[in-house]
């Protein structure tokens, strides 16, 4: 299980990386490499050159900038997990990150790497989508931003142009009326989810004023279940609204079959998660 041979360059600037991206036949960016290295080892990809952006300090760091938390593309999962800023400003991410892989992988795997891989069953793309994050990307025309909700196109497919590099993610800082929920169903701890759900809700008393339900593992990309959300928005959670939301998932999700679950089971599990997370959020409000 050895990769095909490849050239390797550790770049010292974003510009150098972009130049190489434009010049090479089959370039591939490597950062933490925790997903890419196995792909290469299994010879599922044959890049002509790996462009290692690991040394670009501009892509590091986790920093609060007003009402967004900016997470550098090279921030390690372990850094995100240990960050007091993340815990305070983006509690949904704090909850999700512990589900990502295992300690040794979290020490090296990066936030940007997970986002750019766009695995439909991964946690971080779903969190970014649920929260309406924005991605800063750098390319030959300089910096631009892409909303997370327009970034994930299909399995392993993103809106990044071939010569663009993800620089950072801006995640909105939680406001007091927001509530979050996160749950995933995986065969074992650290495995990719069969189905997962990241929830952002803004509550007005016991009413769901806003609701973003992002399912992962339930479609070829992280998906906002808008029909399900509409069934609850503006209302309290009752057996009827809950059931309406669950029923609406059929229109929202495009579940695929794999070894763990067929489409019907995925849809069913998505419904279970939806009920549980909404009940948790609504239950806490009622207690207050």
């Amino acid at each position: 299980m050895k990769p095909y041979p490849f050239e390797y360059t550790r770049v010292s600037s974003l510009e150098e990386a972009v130049t190489l991206l434009q010049r090479e036949d089959e370039p591939r960016i490597i950062a933490g490499g925790q997903s890419l290295v196995p792909i290469l080892a299994m010879r599922l990809a044959a890049p002509s050159r790996l462009i290692d952006i690991g040394g670009l300090s501009a892509l590091r760091g986790i920093e609060r900038r007003g009402d967004v938390l900016r997470i550098g593309a090279l921030a390690r999962h372990a850094e995100v997990m240990a960050s007091a800023e993340v815990a305070e400003a983006v509690p949904l991410l704090a909850r999700a990150i512990s589900h990502v892989a295992h300690p040794a992988v979290r020490n090296r795997g990066t936030f940007g790497g997970s986002v750019c891989l766009a695995d439909p069953a991964a946690e971080l793309p779903a969190v970014c989508t649920a929260l309406g994050a924005t991605f800063e990307v750098f390319g030959s025309d300089g910096l631009r931003t892409i909303p997370a909700r327009e970034f994930f196109l299909d399995i392993y497919e993103t809106a990044l142009a071939p010569d663009e590099i993800l620089v950072a993610a801006q995640l909105p800082v939680a406001c007091p009326k927001e509530r979050f929920g996160f749950e995933e169903i995986a065969r074992r701890h650290g495995d990719f989810a069969i189905v997962g759900l990241a929830v952002r809700a803004r509550m007005e008393g016991t009413l769901f004023a806003e609701l973003d339900l992002c399912f992962f593992g339930a479609s070829p990309r992280p998906v906002l279940a808008q029909n399900a959300a509409r069934a609850v928005i503006g209302q309290e959670l009752t057996d009827e609204t809950q059931q309406a939301a669950v029923s609406a998932l059929t229109a929202d999700l495009d579940p695929q079959e794999d070894a763990q679950a067929d489409a019907e089971m995925r849809l069913h599990l998505a419904g279970v998660l939806l009920k549980r997370r909404l009940a948790e959020i609504a239950g806490k409000e009622r207690q207050q």
Partner: peptide, 24 residues
Amino acid sequence: GVCGACTVRIDGAITRSCLVFGVQ
């Protein structure tokens, strides 16, 4: 990168050495 047998410490942090190329 699944089994953990190759775990070493790199710059103080535990890492799977099969998930890092030597050049990195």
